[in-house]
């Protein structure tokens, strides 16, 4: 009897330890979100999203006159969105095709080697990718540009998308593929009409997570897109991004009040991506 009580006690002890540890894990997250939200809301106005970052002169003049610092992060937002679009346009189709290929030929030497390479690429520090793209694109093109920045981001997204597509297709039961081919379907149509739609939820989740991983990347953009003080739509020119602006605000004492609001915008964007990926995962369960 005592033995049984002891076992019940142990089970309760374990249960409560898990609950307490889980709560402790949430502390840093809540602390981060709280700090960024409280500090960030102070300067956050609608104007903040639609005005480019102020120059040091404008900021100094405004604070001398006792006004709030003018301007916002529109140059960074436009740059981030343009570069995300360009890098996604390449990395999503290429990544999905490669992922399907790796899953479908998983036993071949070529696929095993490619798969290993993908892992290495995924583990390469982003700053090194920045240096590489600087050497390969920026120097030959004789200048920093959004194109170079997008290429760096694209290289970072690719392995993430390849890997998530590969896992998604591998998890599908081979019986769907066999059923499609047994109806006389061509291999291409089987992939297009059965395999990809069935894996869509997971692939899409992977894409969203890949985007959320690179949207905050700063280091590779310092070597490639550089930054720009105005809203720039010409992708052959240097361009700003939200994380680049955060770095600039941090380095400029007069602009530091804008630091938190820019961080808040970036954080909210990433959280939205993460929440959407959860929703997609649940909606597209098969």
């Amino acid at each position: 009897m005592d033995k049984l009580k002891f076992r019940i006690f142990k089970s309760h002890l374990l249960h409560y330890s898990v609950v307490v540890l889980a709560a402790l894990m949430a502390v840093p997250l809540v602390a981060i979100l709280g700090k960024v939200a409280v500090e960030g809301f102070r300067n956050l106005t609608l104007e903040f999203l639609f005005q480019p970052a102020p120059t040091t002169y404008e900021a100094v003049m405004a604070s001398a006159a006792g006004h709030a610092i003018p301007g916002g992060i529109s140059n960074g937002l436009v740059g981030t969105l343009l570069m995300l679009l360009m890098s996604s346009a390449i990395s999503i189709p290429v990544g999905i095709l490669s992922g399907v290929f790796l899953a479908e030929h998983r036993s071949t030497v070529f696929a095993k080697v490619s798969s290993y390479m993908t892992d290495i690429l995924q583990g390469t520090p982003s700053i090194i990718l920045g240096v590489i793209v600087y050497a390969w694109i920026v120097i030959p093109m004789k200048g920093y540009s959004a194109i170079a920045g997008s290429i760096a981001l694209c290289i970072m997204m690719l392995p993430l998308i390849v890997r998530s597509t590969e896992e998604a297709v591998k998890m599908l039961s081979s019986s769907y593929k066999e059923a499609a081919l047994a109806l006389g379907g061509s291999y291409f149509r089987t992939v297009w009409k059965v395999l990809l739609p069935s894996a869509f939820g997971q692939i899409f989740t992977g894409v969203l997570l890949a985007v959320s991983r690179i949207v905050g990347e700063t280091a590779p953009l310092m070597f490639t897109a550089l930054g720009c003080a105005i809203v720039q739509w010409d992708v052959t020119q240097p361009m700003s991004s939200v994380p680049l602006l955060i770095w600039q605000f941090f380095n400029n004492p007069t602009l530091q009040p804008l630091l938190w609001s820019a961080s808040l915008v970036l954080l909210v964007f990433v959280l939205l991506l993460n929440v959407s990926s959860k929703i997609v995962t649940n909606k597209w369960k098969i």
Binding site: S175, A180, A182, L183, G184, G185, V194, F200, I286
Partner: peptide
């Protein structure tokens, strides 16, 4: 196309409607 197959476990295509499942042989061809 001339020799159909039915498998051990029922495997209707999970993303297709009932009607599209019936017509899958045509769309896949």
């Amino acid at each position: 196309r001339e020799v159909g197959m039915v498998f051990q476990r029922p495997n209707p295509f999970p993303t297709m409607s009932i009607a599209d499942n019936v017509l899958a042989g045509y769309s896949l061809n």
